[in-house]
């Protein structure tokens, strides 16, 4: 990635787009759609960010930061712990003529931001890892997540918003033995104590990511002092969601999901979801969420 960043210096956006395939071939870590594609920020169309000061935590390559800055956010503060990714972000911002983005290399638990200075905090794929933050404090993973959210609440102004992209603990893939964060099979479904014990026994470490259900996240945000929590259900994941809805009811599945089910397996899965939706459980097994809450 360091070599890629060096190559991007002085390159124009046209040159970058033209050499896209070559760069993808030469640099194993680089995939245009993932690192620089605007589609990853599609979900932000649901967010009212124009004229606001935004903090993008765990910004990675800037796939959310840059579209926000480009589309009228007043200022975007992009924080990440990996310097090369921020170098990529800074180069892409230069190519696109974006000047209202400030990359910060640092720790998201020690933000150099004044209390009440941010209008909107966005973090995609970060909250689940907060169970590993604050290593010096003797807190459980769940308590660490709450402490992290409280620290973010402090930097938000009164009435400010937080948006979190995260997977569902009850995602269908967990029932099939797969996992998003290299956990042991089925451990995300187990009670935390049992999951931690099993992981320590097999791997010698604690569970590396804490996921919850929609109800669990709602409680987590409320415990950190947030209010007006709204859960947006994302399909098939939060990284490149095709569909997002706040109301995963039967008409939603019939109108937007069923027509996309091209294989027999998917059709059966959609029928199950429609049946669950008919009894008000349509969102329980959504793969991922975007959580919205206010200070």
């Amino acid at each position: 990635m360091r070599l890629l960043v060096r190559e991007l210096r002085g390159m124009s956006e046209e040159d970058f787009l033209e050499s896209r395939s070559r760069l993808e071939e030469n640099y194993r870590d680089f995939e245009y759609e993932y690192c620089a594609g605007r589609a990853r920020a599609d979900w932000t169309m649901l967010v009212d960010f124009a004229g606001r000061v935004v903090a993008d935590l765990g910004c990675g390559y800037g796939s959310v930061s840059l579209p926000l800055a480009e589309r009228g956010a007043k200022l975007v503060v992009s924080v990440d712990a990996t310097l090369e990714r921020l170098g990529f972000l800074a180069n892409l911002a230069r190519m696109r003529g974006i000047r209202n983005v400030v990359p910060i290399h640092g720790d998201v638990t020690a933000l150099p931001l004044a209390a009440g200075s941010i209008d909107l905090v966005v973090m995609v794929g970060l909250l689940e890892y907060a169970c590993n933050f604050f290593p010096s404090q003797r807190l459980s993973g769940h308590q660490k997540q709450i402490a992290f959210l409280r620290s973010l609440r402090k930097v938000l102004r009164e009435g400010g918003e937080i948006w979190v992209g995260i997977e569902n603990r009850l995602s269908p893939i967990h029932f099939l033995g797969a996992s998003y964060h290299h956990e042991l099979p089925f451990t995300p479904l187990l009670p935390r104590f049992a999951a931690n014990t099993l992981t320590r026994w097999v791997r010698g470490t604690n569970l590396n990511a804490y996921l919850s259900s929609a109800r669990g996240y709602r409680r987590l945000l409320e415990a950190a002092g947030f209010r007006a929590v709204c859960v947006h259900h994302a399909y098939p994941d939060y990284k490149l969601p095709k569909l997002i809805t706040t109301r995963p009811d039967r008409p939603f599945f019939a109108t937007h999901v069923a027509p996309h089910a091209g294989t027999t397996t998917l059709r059966i899965a959609v029928s199950v979801l429609q049946t669950l939706a008919a009894v008000g459980l349509g969102g329980v097994f959504s793969p991922a969420f975007f959580l919205q809450a206010r200070k």
Partner: peptide
């Protein structure tokens, strides 16, 4: 309330 559908075609979509 809205449902968001993310189209294909990458940056041109």
């Amino acid at each position: 309330s809205a449902v968001l559908y993310s189209g294909s075609r990458g940056d041109h979509g």
